[in-house]
Amino acid sequence: MSKPSPKVENPVVTHKLSIDAVSKRFPLPGGKEIEAIRDVSFGVEENEICVILGPSGCGKSTILRMVAGLVDPSSGTLLLDGHEISGPDKERGMVFQAYTSFDWLSVRGNVEYGMRINGVPTAKRHEQAQKFIDLVQLGKFAEVYPSQLSGGMKQRVAIARTLANDPSLLLMDEPFGALDAETRWHMQELLVSIAESANTTIVMVTHDIEEAIYLADKIVFLSSHPGRVHEIIVPEFKKGRRYTDKEEVIAMKGYSALERQIMKLMREQGASDDY
């Protein structure tokens, strides 16, 4: 459990991303409001993989969308590198669960897209695109249209496209949720190696406990209705290391205890759920 004190008006820039006392209410038809998020505070450090986990209805996607600038908070502040987040920006690139490939562009065209609209010179663009196409292992498919790619490959294009745009923060909203189990597991391992080689700070939302434990340096566990930070869990058993073999992590002492602990939390915190 670690919560920054709510008294701090302007928190000192100790985190790369600081979310401070953020709440979100959505209007309902009939003039009422529903509170999706209440007083959420946590920080994300440079090069950290932070996973937001929680039962359905805990507003985890809403938090991520606020970090992306796609949704404004009703109250509270979000700071990235000390600057307040307002509106979407290329410094916070987002990968969605739904496939977002631009079907009219080749894989290379997709990966170059962000750099193209931001006016990166052609030579630099080609070089950067090639680097990230190779990083997500799509070298052989660079000239292919997305409609000919599998779901996992489409998500790799989306990751490469976002990273090639050189964001300060990579946001991922259940990026592997639509993939089959085997592809998902490969993608998780790939993400670990990408995070290592590209020094990326990642904030990811998932409801998959196994995925959270394997990927996360830090798990922000939310309770639901409204979403609040229930607990911040650091998978201590990984001893601050990352592993590109998932089975290695699963076999580690401490893995199953943590998984059990989180499953229990899920059950308790999701129990009040309507469904």
Binding site: A68, G69, L70, P88, D89, K90, R92, G93, M94, F96, A98, T100, F102, Y113, G114, I117, N118, A158, R161, T162, N165, P167, L171
Partner: peptide
């Protein structure tokens, strides 16, 4: 699809782009 537009926004596109 909304996600395509939001992807463009988080890649730094303004509305006309």
């Amino acid at each position: 699809r909304k996600e395509l537009i939001e992807t463009g926004l988080t890649l730094g596109g303004d509305r006309w782009t």
